[in-house]
Design a protein around this nucleic acid. Structure first.
Length: 429
DNA sequence: TCTGGGGTCCTAGGACCC
DNA sequence: TCTGGGGTCCTAGGACCC
């Protein structure tokens, strides 16, 4: 049975993906690393999270711990950068703003990816339109992109993957025969929505290409996986099941966590880190006018250390009244921390999660403590504004500590000041 | 010595109820 | 010898994404 002959409303989706995004951002301000192997490291200089083409060719893998590739780095004179998310965020906003000009239906999918609806473009113009998008992004921001265009999000992901390998940087999958040819060459593990576990299951059942997945029986997928698995199969058949989310939605939870630059043992130091996490999480949700109803604190030792016993625990506290007040969150988090802290372990990471986020009602009257409520709101606002004006952590609270020996490593930071971003020579005129 | 961080969605299973 | 059954709601943990 063929699944490709359904008559359906035309639905065209482009996926625009910035190539080696973090590396490309660093290159904007550092022309000497163009055409050189470059990698960007995760927080704490832990893992490789972005690689230039040259770095990929050397054999540096995505997600690999930095210490494991140090030799390769040295031998090949690879340029190393600690991540600079403020910078990447700024560049991302610029790219998205330009993309928006090409379609009024856009979904910003991640810091370096967006889906655009191109249903209003005739099929024969799609490739040309894709090239226009690509050229304008390149010209106005110097960021190279790859563009995949197809009838569903999953197929546009496939097209994008192919576009990355071809020189034009644009791939349109709009006819069934070509699409099938490409799907036959497409390994199952590269399909969007098929991770490690599903790959294993599919391969065990002799489904090792996207084409085989597309032609699998509906009953089998539903029985063996879940609704997401079934959706992926439909999408490969060109039947759209994953909608374009054009409305910006607010987050439903907010997590702040960090590994420590140096392992820590004491409750006091953990308290400092948790306090710092609460301050930034509270600031984030206040920025979105949200409040939280529950806070989770978690701590753990290193899962990689085979010589020491692993300890990991978390505690969730439900708050009596939804809040975004830093002090209240810190108090709750501190209580939670005390219940899970165990002496004698060397902790590697701590974090907090604010969940059940909802819209803060602007004029909510708390009859029990109206005055207190207002005062603390004013205080939080003052803190946020000062920190925006004078830089992060201009105002903090004492419990966050000032001499944080546990702070993360950032030995290869490019120190590009995004505050003076507009002065930097990024526009090529 | 050194292994990221921040999200979403789904499901199994427990708690609870009648 | 021998546990009711069926429904809802909630949560922890898993899988996936970038």
């Amino acid at each position: 049975m063929s699944y490709t002959n359904y008559s359906r409303k035309k639905n065209t989706i482009a996926l625009i993906d910035c190539n080696s995004f973090y590396v490309s951002c660093e290159r904007l301000f550092n022309p000497k690393i163009i055409n050189k192997p470059v990698v960007v490291l995760s927080n704490n200089d832990g893992c490789v999270i972005s690689r230039s083409t040259e770095a990929k060719q050397i054999g540096i893998k995505m997600g690999e711990p930095y210490f494991k590739v140090k030799n390769l780095v040295k031998k090949n004179k690879v340029y190393i950068f600690s991540s600079n998310y403020a910078l990447y965020g700024d560049i991302s906003r610029r790219v998205m703003k330009i993309l928006k000009e090409f379609s009024d239906k856009m979904e910003v999918y991640s810091i370096d990816e967006a889906f655009l609806s191109l249903s209003f473009i005739e099929d024969q113009r799609l490739e040309e339109y894709g090239k226009e998008i690509r050229e304008r992004i390149l010209k106005w921001t110097s960021i190279p992109t790859s563009i995949g265009i197809a009838n569903t999000k999953t197929l546009s992901k496939v097209a994008n993957y192919i576009a990355k390998k071809n020189k034009a940087g644009v791939k349109v999958l709009d006819n069934d025969k070509d699409t099938d040819e490409e799907l036959k060459k497409f390994h199952i593990s590269n399909v969007w929505g098929v991770g490690k576990q599903l790959s294993k299951l599919y391969i065990k059942n002799n489904v090792d290409t996207a084409y085989k997945l597309k032609n699998i029986s509906n009953t089998w997928v539903k029985k063996s996986t879940n609704v997401l698995g079934a959706k992926t199969v439909m999408e490969l058949r060109g039947i759209s099941c994953v909608n374009l989310e054009t409305l910006e939605t607010k987050r439903k939870s907010c997590c702040v966590s960090r590994s420590f630059g140096k392992k820590i043992e004491s409750l006091d130091k953990l308290k400092e880190s948790i306090t710092t996490h609460c301050l930034s999480a509270a600031e984030k949700i206040r920025g979105d006018d949200q409040v939280t109803k529950s806070i989770t604190v978690f701590i753990r030792t290193s899962p990689f250390d085979r010589h020491k016993e692993y300890y990991s625990n978390s505690k969730t506290i439900d708050l009596p009244i939804a809040t975004n007040n830093s002090i209240e969150l810190i108090n709750a988090a501190t209580e939670a921390l005390k219940t899970i802290y165990k002496y004698g372990y060397f902790y590697q990471k701590s974090g907090i999660i604010l969940s059940q986020l909802t819209e803060a009602k602007k004029e909510e009257f708390n009859l029990l403590a109206p005055l207190l409520e207002t005062k603390s709101k004013v205080l939080m606002k003052a803190i946020d504004q000062t920190n925006i004006k004078y830089g992060r952590n201009s105002i903090s609270i004492a419990q966050a500590g000032t001499n944080n020996s546990w702070k993360m490593r950032r030995e290869h930071f490019s120190k590009i000041d995004t505050a003076s971003f507009n002065n930097l020579p990024m526009l090529k005129i």
